[in-house]
């Protein structure tokens, strides 16, 4: 089996209709992230984010639409609130809040995806390994 991905991206299908484009943008900055498509970024709840971190991912990123373009009107706004809410849990646990992040990008915008990938890569570089990651057997 593959090693566990270090970066998990939860992408709104409206903002990223083709996950392969985001995968390619991530590969170009040297990351092999696991992309999970969501019908709306507001589908992502705090417990999803925390459970993915508990499985050992170093960084979890949510990609949603720009707020004014959200098809569910408030979905993207709620996503921002939820990531912030989950970050407050991380702060309470004494973990880096930077392990969670989000971006908003409009569909059909390769430069936007490249910028998202660069932002993810920069954030990943600054983070130490996730203490929850299972250590390889010696």
């Amino acid at each position: 089996m593959k090693p566990k991905p270090e970066v998990v991206v939860l992408a709104c299908t409206q903002a990223v209709p083709q996950p392969s484009a985001l995968r390619q943008a991530l590969q170009e900055v040297g990351l092999s992230g696991h992309i999970i498509q969501e019908p709306c970024s507001s589908k992502v709840e705090a417990f999803h984010l925390l459970r993915i971190l508990a499985k050992g991912a170093d960084l979890v990123w949510v990609v949603g639409c720009p707020e004014q373009y959200c098809q569910l009107a408030e979905g993207s706004t709620r996503m921002g609130f939820r990531v912030a809410h989950a970050q407050s849990y991380l702060a309470e646990l004494g973990l880096e809040t930077a392990r969670l992040g989000f971006s908003r990008v409009a569909a059909g915008n390769p430069e936007g995806l490249a910028a998202v990938a660069a932002e993810i890569q920069q954030r990943r570089k600054d983070l130490p390994p996730n203490p929850a990651r299972p250590r390889p057997a010696a």
Partner: peptide
């Protein structure tokens, strides 16, 4: 289908 649950 999938459930979008807006708890707020």
């Amino acid at each position: 289908g999938t459930v979008l649950d807006w708890g707020e």
